[in-house]
Design a protein around this nucleic acid. Structure first.
Lengths: 329, 329
DNA sequence: CTGTTAGCGCATTCAG
DNA sequence: CTGAATGCGCTAACAG
């Protein structure tokens, strides 16, 4: 193991000088010494020990990212954006996956805090449970008290910098667009009632329907994933002409089940989702949805956290009407 | 910032004792002192400083994972498996994305090495370029010389523990199955010629066709992603009755372009992919493909690396025939 | 079982 | 511009 001291000795300079040239110090070092140190480092194959550096500096260059599920393309996209932004500022990203278990999320904050990461990012919906939110907040407070930065992508419930997708408004706009196609009898595949992202999308959609004078939609709860959409179809009211799944992955599950049952989308039934997941754009029929700039949301969150800003940035969704939803005859 | 020393003082014990109870030491500590230390730690809100621990121990508990692209569901699945295995052994995962740039891959090995991660995992195809492979090997050798473990998911070209999907054999088996449906005129959407995973799948497929006495397939090179499949269709020979895309994501692109051109799959043309990406299973028509246990591959790689074994584990693919490929009339 | 002590590798005062 | 010295928080001998 080659240390800075080895390099210094080899270059015939002091430890301090070697440190100054090899690691980004503000201090200047004379041309001659600088060359000597660089040469010695190269010859010896010196590699900074980041752990030692972190300890000495009291600050690391890694940021922690906590997601619900990396296999869900929603989180993969956010993670990708976050990693790009982090890399741009010379940071590495440490990832934790909660598999939607709030306690695991809290545990990760604690672990990342022990790692002394510079910032932690919490991506994904909050849960409607004051006890859990409270515990998470306490954990975050401790982390921040020790100098850490926090940002979240989702609801502004944690008192930290937040990139907040306009779920309600997006869903409302989608409802408007769908109603504009002539639909009046809707179903909402609403996901789990306690997941705030799901609840907001559901609420925004239903509220707009009411404002439009349409009858209240059939509401079917279930998991927030592909199977949630798939199984929800079982209990679908046959009078419904348009189904809104609160995310694209659920919509895909719904489409699969509908196909199995011989229901032709959009001829017999219109379907829409939310998120506009890129990997799913080649589905048949192409999904009507609300586009969210996921990668950008991840990047923004990293930038906020690293800048130490505690802003709440709203992010608008854009309604995208594709073949899966069509004008009601 | 509460340190171990603060805890020790508060508990009225020595630093060493506090260390022994709070961090997993083999040494035993008496019941009384143990309680006192735990109480003090809780009251003070003590949190281990992992950087200091890493420095003192000379070993960290994080593992590095280098992938080509986290948004590609292939890598997301591998990463997921790797993270599960890592979590099981109490490790965190630091992720780097190369965006398919080999130099970035080398740079990440170097960065992770500076982080003193316990192991690094390289996921994704190697490139057919001895110069690049050489530089990567040298970097890995340096890392291993400093005590790091390495494992890869892909080709066994690095002299490290490897989980190696049987790309050739899988593609050959697929060729057999497709030929069994009566097809003889094939096209291979072969991806980039220098990507070994792509080349192996192509080679295995073509070799089996030859063995079966079928004419050589049309070969169309292009990017290894959705657009690679999409654009490849432009130059498709109209006499071809079955298209093999060397991965599922390319197959999706091909299906999209075919649909636009009014070609009905599988009535007019059969299509198959490789990987069996879960997110893509609800495609229409369902894709014939070769299933790879991606998450398991990621887990195995982590286990190998952490165990310090330098084995090469072959992983077989399983042919899955679905609607996108059908019997030739 | 418990305490003392000497580093781990590096950044950073403070002198010169 | 350069060097000597101190400490970051923790672990692991070593002693008792």
């Amino acid at each position: 193991m080659i240390t800075l001291e080895d390099v210094a000795r080899r270059a015939g300079v002091s430890l301090a000088t070697a440190s100054r040239v090899l690691n980004g110090s503000t201090r200047q070092v004379g041309e001659t010494m600088r060359r000597r140190v660089e040469a010695a480092a190269a010859e010896l194959g010196y590699r900074t020990n980041v752990a030692a550096q972190t300890l000495a500096r009291g600050a690391s260059n890694v940021i922690g990212l906590v997601v619900h599920d990396l296999v869900d393309p929603y989180f993969a996209a956010i993670a990708d954006g976050a990693m790009r932004a982090a890399a741009e500022q010379g940071h590495m990203v440490m990832v934790g996956t909660t598999y939607r278990d709030p306690d695991r999320e809290i545990a990760y904050v604690s672990t990342l805090s022990a790692q002394r990461v510079r910032a932690v990012l919490l991506a994904g919906s909050r849960v409607d449970d004051p006890a859990i939110t409270g515990r998470l907040r306490r954990e975050l407070d401790r982390y921040r008290a020790s100098g850490g930065q926090v940002a979240s992508v989702g609801q502004d419930l944690l008192g930290v910098a937040t990139v907040a997708p306009a779920n309600r408004e997006g869903a409302a706009a989608l409802a408007r667009a769908l109603a504009g196609l002539g639909h009046r009898r809707f179903a909402v595949l609403a996901g789990p009632a306690h997941l705030i992202t799901a609840a907001d999308r559901h609420a925004g959609f239903a509220a707009e329907l009411a404002a439009l004078g349409a009858p209240p939609p059939q509401v079917i709860h279930g998991p927030f994933d592909r199977n949630g959409g798939y199984t929800a179809i079982e209990t679908l009211d046959p009078r419904v002409t348009c189904v809104f799944a609160v995310n694209d992955v659920m919509a895909v599950g719904a489409l699969a089940r509908l196909r199995e049952r011989g229901v032709v989308v959009p001829d017999d039934l219109s379907v829409a989702g939310f998120d506009d997941i890129a990997t799913l754009r080649d589905l048949t029929p192409p999904l009507s949805t609300v586009r969210l700039p996921l990668a950008e949301m991840g990047s923004r969150a990293v930038e906020l956290a690293l800048a130490g800003e505690s802003a709440v940035i709203p992010v608008a969704g854009e309604v995208v009407l594709r073949e899966s939803a069509r004008k009601l005859r």
